[in-house]
Amino acid sequence: MRLAYVWDSRKCIACMACVVACASANYPELMREAKPNPQWNWLAGNIRVIVGENGGKPELRLISCQHCENAPCVSACPTRASYIDRRTGLVRIDHSKCIGCKACLVACPYGARWLNPATMLPEKCPGPFCSKLIENGLNPVCVEVCPAGARYFGDLDDPESPVNEELRKHRVERMLEHLGTNPKWFVITG
């Protein structure tokens, strides 16, 4: 199984429902205490928003863990606390093994990791709540709450999965693909 995310940039209305849902569902204690994600000075969740410009128009990107098959964070981790889950293909963190050296935060070219101010340990997608959803065969919250239906989640090895269906139909790109990270997070651009 190789679980992957697809985000349709054409459908996204930038409502930030996924951002808020991720933070509320996965880190409710930080939300209650109004503690931010310190790396991004942003809601304590796993989704970061960046806005650039393309031909005079704003260009939006939602950044979270790309679940790279050749993940720099996994290579950098000295204790194997960051690892690729063979059952799902997702990049995960075993916090019990983490020593907090922050090498994974430095190594990630997407800036998809942040340091939990309560535990001083790294966090990333999927958070603890979404991990349970995925283990039970459900979609992560960002996919469930998207009002525009711009997010998809599924198995790349299953030809019938919604992600494969979208990948077959549209032109897609993977962010920073030239770095050789082989990410499993696809952006529909056309």
């Binding site: 290579s75 000295p78 204790t79 606390a81 983490c98 020593i99 907090g100 535990t119 340990l121």
Partner: peptide
């Protein structure tokens, strides 16, 4: 600099040969 310096031994217990650290 580590968040959990007392867990340092885990570098040896879970040695990752791909990691420079």
């Amino acid at each position: 600099d580590l968040s959990r310096p007392l867990e340092f031994w885990r570098i040896f217990a879970g040695f990752n040969p791909d990691s420079r650290i």
